[in-house]
């Protein structure tokens, strides 16, 4: 049931797309991108995520990070649903290039071609690329 404070006057809602292009470890982009995604969702904006290039590794199953002394933050992607972030898109060519399929991923996604992703990007108000 909706709480009374949940149906207050709504602010402007824009379409925010986050394009994740980097491997989850090696640089901090993926981790810090995820922080922006969560905050944007907290602002009740229309959020979608794209994983392309090495960014597809961010949502690969079975990440084990003990050996590199980094925290495995991949479970956070599974928690996105709880923040109403449900539009996750993956670039098909990026998967193919890396020998991955949808079954290798730890969240439900929609796999799209680059042309389809391009169309989707056209519809956004703001795109941030990390």
């Amino acid at each position: 049931m909706a709480e009374p404070w949940e149906d207050e006057v709504e602010g402007p809602v824009k379409k925010f797309m986050f394009v994740n292009r980097k491997a989850p470890y090696g640089t901090i982009y993926a981790l810090e991108s995820l922080e922006v995604v969560l905050i944007t969702a907290a602002f009740d904006q229309d959020v979608s995520l794209v994983f392309s290039d090495d960014g597809v590794y961010q949502i690969k199953k079975g990440q084990v990070t003990d050996g590199i002394g980094m925290k495995n933050f991949s479970p956070t992607y599974r928690a996105l649903e709880g923040y109403d972030v449900e539009k996750l898109y993956v670039d098909k060519e990026s998967l193919d290039e890396r020998g991955l399929t949808e079954d290798d991923l730890l969240v439900d996604v929609e796999v799209l071609s680059r042309a389809e992703l391009g169309k989707l990007m056209d519809e956004q108000d703001t795109i941030m690329s990390f």
């Binding site: 602010g11 402007p12 824009k14 925010f16 922080e35 922006v36 905050i39 944007t40 907290a42 602002f43 904006q45 108000d125 703001t126 941030m128």
Partner: peptide, 11 residues
């Protein structure tokens, strides 16, 4: 300040 300021800029 926080990341909310970035989101606000986007809005």
């Amino acid at each position: 300040s926080g990341l909310g300021q970035l989101v606000e800029a986007g809005i």
